[in-house]
Design a protein around this nucleic acid. Structure first.
Length: 362
DNA sequence: TCTGGGGTCCTAGGACCC
DNA sequence: TCTGGGGTCCTAGGACCC
């Protein structure tokens, strides 16, 4: 006998806050409860911006995140439109994550502002999840839904069936019964492009993907991604929740300009502003810069990216000088609607070798 | 008057070396 | 003189997520 309760099954819980951003706004403005609330940009629907979150009342009108704010405002004339307040959401998120970490024997892997995996050994995952929901509500006044699974993928996919405020369990046993007839785009990690390419291979549903031959998948998507998509279709993969502190590979800043930039000077000045912000973020971490990136959008569907490896340095002036090589690649006489600057940082030597928490472990 | 801003990982193809 | 094949590094770009 070891000290570990080896026959207690390990479960993955995927915790997802319900309409998180809108809910945080309602907490500080209770008069908004029950109203269509849309959060996006600077809260001005005449500006170029998109919806970050809509409350369920606004979603009933067909508004969803990613939609241009202007169109959302037209769909819901009575909507309350609020600016994005990052600091408020970060503070609320920190409270939620602290609550999760305080649960008995919980291993917590944060995925974003409003979601996390919780790994736990328990004989009754539903009861554990319900306790967790009560704890989050008591401490933050926010509601969440919980997906319960025997793998990370199944837990993640289960959550949607529990919304709002509920729980749902997906395991090897019921995966294909629940997911089998759904289109592949419902899978986490399959978007519009991949689902379309799968369809061209004759694969439309999750079940069809689950039983597909790997050879044509590998031929279409490459030796890594091909087999990975098939595994997604089966819901298989790791059940290990990884609480290793996240280390950023880099930092970037992007801005969409309300009016396109035309003059060369204006474009270069704007890029320097973004680069300065990026270097502030990098400096705050004290890690050297090893690469640079530039993104430029000339028109809605024409985006170019340029990257460049540079010799490891802490010196701002050196980085700015290196960036001029990328800036020279911006085409003249072409209106620019978005600029982005990115700096890649040297990774710490310890432990990150081969560690890719967001994807390849699954 | 369509399309944010912050990230991650993978792949293809060219350059270069042996 | 022409040509092979493997490996690595780098850049551009694709795709996905919240």
């Amino acid at each position: 006998m070891t000290g570990r309760a080896t026959d207690t099954p390990r479960w993955v819980l995927h915790v997802d806050l319900d309409q998180f951003i809108a809910a945080v706004e309602v907490l500080r403005r209770p008069d908004l409860a029950g109203k269509p609330v849309i959060v996006g940009g600077r809260g001005d629907p005449t500006e170029r911006a998109v919806v970050s979150t809509a409350s369920y009342e606004a979603r009933a009108f067909g508004v969803g995140s990613g939609m241009p704010l202007r169109i959302a405002a037209r769909k819901v004339p009575d909507a309350v439109i609020l600016p994005v307040d990052h600091a408020a959401y970060t503070a609320a998120s920190d409270e939620v994550m602290a609550t999760l970490r305080a649960q008995p024997d919980a291993v917590v892997q944060v995925l974003g502002w409003d979601e996390a995996f919780v790994g736990v050994a328990t004989a009754d995952p539903e009861a554990y999840a319900e306790n967790l929901q009560h704890a989050v509500l008591a401490r933050t006044r926010l509601h969440c839904s919980v997906g319960i699974g025997d793998t990370l993928v199944r837990a993640k996919n289960a959550t949607g069936f529990g919304k709002p405020r509920g729980r749902f369990r997906l395991t090897a046993e019921n995966w294909l019964d629940v997911m089998g007839e759904r289109p592949t785009i419902d899978l986490w990690g399959v978007g519009t492009k991949i689902s379309r390419r799968l369809e061209a291979l004759g694969i439309r549903t999750v079940r069809e993907l689950a039983v597909a031959d790997t050879a044509p998948l590998a031929a279409e998507f490459g030796p890594k991604m091909g087999p990975w998509y098939r595994q997604l279709g089966r819901g298989d993969g790791s059940n290990v929740v990884d609480d290793t502190p996240w280390v950023a590979r880099g930092h970037s800043r992007e801005t969409t300009y309300q009016q396109d930039l035309v003059a060369r000077d204006a474009i270069e000045a704007a890029a320097q502003v973004l680069l300065a912000q990026v270097l502030d973020d990098v400096a705050a971490e004290g890690r050297p810069v090893v690469g640079l990136g530039l993104k430029v959008r000339y028109a809605p569907f024409l985006t170019k990216t340029f990257t460049r490896k540079i010799a490891e340095t802490h010196d701002r002036a050196t980085v700015i000088a290196e960036a001029s090589v990328l800036l020279a690649k911006i085409e003249p006489d072409r209106p620019v609607r978005l600029l982005g600057m990115r700096a890649e940082m040297a990774m710490p030597d310890d432990a990150r070798e081969g560690h890719t928490p967001t994807r390849s472990g699954w």
